[in-house]
Amino acid sequence: MTTAAPLTTTPVSKSETKKLSAAATAKNRLTSPWASLAAVVIAVLWTIPTFGLLISSFRPEMAIKRTGWWTFFSDPEVTLDNYRAVFDDGGINLADFFLNSLVITIPSVVIPLCLASLAAYAFAWMNFPGKNVLFIAIFALQIVPLQVTLVPLLQLYVKAELNNTFWTLWLSHSTFALPLAIYLLHNFIKEVPASLIEAARIDGAGHVSIFFKVLLPLLTPALAAFGIFQFLWVWNDLLVSLTFAGSPEISPMTVQLSNLSGTRGTAWHLLSAGAFVSIVVPVTVFLLLQRYFVRGLLAGSVKG
């Protein structure tokens, strides 16, 4: 919520190589080889778990069950059977869940972005009574843990006969996203120079055309940052999906993977391949859009 402080995008240090930062000085005196060694050790520790499962996902089922993945290097056996098995129609059918994840995620990103842009614009450039109180109230809603809302929400959905439909997830994810989205977009819109808005107004532009012609093009980085954060949040969510979308017709990959881990906890050939199918999308987003991604993630890290 209050991550605003460190959000200031890394001032690309005027890195004159002579001047070293405080940290670099501290590190240098730590006698550099040791510092490098420590960094490498941490990096290796952080990478090995993922690497081990990745290797395993390409090993034959029998090999995974009998020997550790590190024996792969002395006795390499590669197969795509595990990936075939998780997409197999009769078995886990991961393709269906992959589709569900997509169908759940896309509207859950688009809807709050539209609604929050409207609200953020109203807060930033309009005057109306109770503006500050309402803004603070919405801001404060960010700290409400999702858990507090789930039981009554489920009751509401059942009453509205929406239970077991995608609507439960679209509506819930959109609602939960609004406070953060409004806060972020508002901060961004506020930064737009008032003179720009004034000029448009003098030219006779109304609120609608100001929003579309002046603000929207400037807003793109903020929309991208929030959009990516929300995309990953929804794609990776387990709690909301498990609560509202327990039935396999609409549940996303996370639910299926979590179930699989509980019911067939030793089927590592399926678990490993399944995990990597679910990881592919967020990691691709990360690699392609790293800058926006980091910004969005930092800004939204207290959500939920």
């Binding site: 395993s56 990776n236 881990s261 590592w268 678990l271 490993s272 995990a275 990691v283 987003v285 993630l297």
Partner: peptide
């Protein structure tokens, strides 16, 4: 690891 789901992270570590 920050970008992947907690579920996938759990599977990785369970292994």
């Amino acid at each position: 690891p920050m970008s992947i789901s907690f579920v996938a992270a759990s599977v990785i570590w369970k292994f």
